[in-house]
Design a protein around this nucleic acid. Sequence first.
RNA 1: GGAGAGGUGGCCGAGCGGCUGAAGGCGCUCCCCUGCUAAGGGAGUAUAGGGCGUAAAACUCUAUCGAGGGUUCGAAUCCCUCCCUCUCCGCCA
Length: 424
Amino acid sequence: MLDPQLFRTDLEDVVAALAGRGYAFDVKRYRKLEAQRKELQVEVESIRAARNQQSKKIGKMKAAGENAELILQEVAGLGDQLAAAEQVLEKVQVDLDGLLHSVPNLPANGVPDGFNEEQNKELRTWGKIKSFDFEVSDHVDLGTALGQMDFEVAAKLTGSRFVVLKGQLARLHRALIQFMLDVHTEQHGYSETYVPYLVNRDSLFGTGQLPKFEEDQFCATEDDFFLIPTAEVPLTNMYRRVITPAEQLPIKMVAHTPCFRREAGSYGRDTRGMIRQHQFEKVELVQLVHPEHSVQALEELTGHAERILQLLELPYRAVALCKGDLGFSANKTYDLEVWLPSQQCYREISSCSSYDTFQARRMQARYRSEGDKPQLLHTLNGSGLAVGRTLLAIMENYQTTMGEIVLPAVIQPYMGGQRQLSPI
RNA sequence: GGAGAGGUGGCCGAGCGGCUGAAGGCGCUCCCCUGCUAAGGGAGUAUAGGGCGUAAAACUCUAUCGAGGGUUCGAAUCCCUCCCUCUCCGCCA
């Protein structure tokens, strides 16, 4: 969330910045609630102060063996007055919190203007798009022909948007995870972390998925736990209500987890294949940094994700999301999009974002420099990479006319030296 | 799942209805003393929110002793619910 102080001091600027990303802030409602809040809070606190003072007096009188009857009667009325005022304040505070909690982050400097995907800005492309001298298949046809990818049996087990992988393809899927983790831990300085896949409401609130996006989450209602939509949630929330000594920053963590998303509202999109699933694997990078370093950190983190694509020799491009395409909590996002021959276009395979203090404020994740007060730190994260999409990108980009899949050199050691996948 | 014990400040630990934002100790910061080291003396040492302030400070109010409710003029202290930790038993990958 944004600093409530910012709304009080720079309302105009905040509203303008929000309009830039297509968010209409209800200024009238805010002004009204904030005015009420202020008045009521002052009232409640002054009643409370009066009561505390009197109660203390009663204590002292009783200790001295005096009769406190008179004051006691006087104070009795305060209790009801206080309760009534508190109730009204509570209601206003809840409304105000609700309003502020659903306000998205402000775009960072330099984020391109625009309200939708078309206005995102391509920054660079990498790798050579292969030309095939035969009709390319998509990963569904390739996987089915291999006899190692089965959507129908997954549908029987659960429903749509799930997949079963078998044999060498399942192994490749696992190998990609190992490979990514190895690169990030050994070359990029991330600390490997294993985390819960079920989290509570506080955690989802901390990273910004709640309260606004509850319908996108899978909930274990019995316990009020949620299946994580990304490892960002448990990783970042490890530092919820923690004050980290400044010299321990940056904190860099990497985790492989499954991710679960209901994909509500995307019923018609990417219904074929592994692009959009309810369950998928991801290797996630998270950094907690000193505010002065977050701009640089986003560039680095994005580079770390790009490194995986480069090592796998998959053509991709990097895109800066425009203001209107930013996620709720992000102030800046770079998407990495991998080339898919079957679709003749680039598709998202990684999303790297910085959040300035937006998540940190919700989580109260802070750092402290020697002798200073605790300050909110900055959070960042990015996929390094989405594993399912990496798998299908390899299948499509490395297919042969015989329907085999040639394995990128770096992955072969993880496949027992095997050099290609062939039909079972 | 059964039985028990607990959750207090950076840490240890007292308190079990008022004078306790919280004794005492450790740690940390500053000052004094001692020619180093060790020891000693003194002061300070939470976080968040509000009001007032151009800002910082100062001042002032409020909240916080696992979380949420309740009793009371007044709750760290009494009652209820929940969460977490530990010990023993059972079960289990």
